[in-house]
């Protein structure tokens, strides 16, 4: 079981907490990026929280997910620690990837998180591969491949879905249709009504759900998980959602107007789920505010931790290319160690 499911009031509150944590993490990352503290690219998940959280709520702890370039939400939904995530964004030695990956490559394979991914469409083949391991060893798990609407145009996505289908593997493909691939609207990239229609080409069920509704996502994934575990193969789920921020931080967003963003904000996944929990008597406004403050505190602590953490030693650039060392690289590692007063590393 996941440590939260939407079957209990407690689990629902936990799901809300995760969504709050994701939002707080990403809003903070956006601010820190704007201030020039975070290098590279960051792609934020604000507005899309219900997809990652709904999906992971329906998974078991040891199930796998393969993420995208917009991966922070998937990480937190899967239970990764914001401290080490933020440290990774800051390029620090004890970030999840020891500073080698950054925002676009956060991974924790032991926790079932097979990595954010800088290559659009590369996650689904990873999920098919994880499902192959599961099937091969008869393990009681599933693997989820996340992808964006834009990624549905990639050949390797369809090859992966077809493989999972013909081999009847326990895989689930979750399309996060946020209406755009960078600045290009979904209508200019595809000629189908629903992206889930493409499932038919691979002989698997395809469903489209409200991706602003965490329970709708969780129900679809739960169903898909049952199917996969019953040996009935993969499912494709399209979650209709929206990103509030630019494609990446710094995007001028010439391709849309503020009204469109406002309309989607009215269906905000956090606000709407909160209302529902209050209506059901599972939450009060006061408790919600407390939760919000806690989420912020968690992220502030993560930020403080990341800022204080040590940079990697330059010689670490030469680690982890292979399982063993090769002379071509080793000589540079030795030079880097020697350069820093006798190698204090």
């Amino acid at each position: 079981m996941s440590d939260y499911t939407l079957d209990s009031a407690e689990g629902r509150v936990e799901a809300l907490r995760r969504m709050l944590t994701i939002r707080s993490f990403d809003e903070t990352a956006g601010e820190r990026f704007a201030d020039g503290e975070i290098p590279g690219f960051v792609h934020l998940y604000v507005g899309e929280e219900a997809v990652g959280v709904g999906t992971c709520a329906a998974l078991n702890d040891d199930d796998y997910i393969a993420s995208t370039h917009r991966g922070h939400g998937h990480c937190i939904a899967k239970g990764l620690n914001p401290k080490y995530m933020m440290a990774e964004l800051y390029g620090k030695a004890d970030g999840y990837c020891n500073g080698k990956g950054g925002s676009m490559h956060i991974a924790d394979v032991d926790a079932g998180m097979l990595g954010a991914n800088g290559i659009v469409g590369a996650g689904p083949p990873m999920a098919t591969g994880a499902a192959l391991s599961i099937d091969y060893q008869g393990r009681d798990q599933v693997a989820v491949g996340f992808l964006g609407d834009g990624a549905v145009a990639q050949g390797q996505v369809h090859e992966a879905v077809n493989l999972a289908s013909t081999w009847n593997l326990p895989a689930i493909f979750v399309i996060e249709n946020n209406r755009y691939g960078e600045g290009t609207p979904v209508e200019q990239q595809h000629n189908v009504d629903n992206l889930s229609d493409t499932a038919a080409a691979h002989g698997i069920p395809g469903v489209t759900v409200d991706g602003m509704d965490v329970t709708a996502v969780a129900e679809a994934v739960e169903e898909a998980r049952k199917r996969a575990r019953a040996g009935d193969g993969p499912t494709m789920i399209e979650a209709e959602t929206y990103r509030y921020r630019g494609h990446y931080e710094g995007d001028e967003q010439v391709y849309r107007d503020e009204d469109e963003v406002e309309r989607w904000r009215e269906q905000d996944p956090i606000a709407s789920f909160k209302e529902r929990l209050i209506d059901r008597g599972e939450l009060t406004e006061a408790v919600f505010e407390e939760m919000q403050a806690e989420a912020q505190a968690t992220i502030e602590n993560a930020l403080a931790y990341a800022k204080e953490a040590d940079d990697p030693h330059p010689s670490e650039a030469y680690e982890d290319m292979f399982g063993d060392s090769v002379p071509e690289i080793e000589r540079f590692a030795q030079q880097a160690t020697a350069r820093t007063d006798g190698g204090d590393h």
Partner: peptide, 16 residues
């Protein structure tokens, strides 16, 4: 570039 990929952290990227 020594035979590595380009790492993210500025410290490491500068190194290679």
């Amino acid at each position: 570039t020594p035979d590595t990929h380009i790492p993210f952290s500025p410290t490491l990227e500068d190194e290679v």
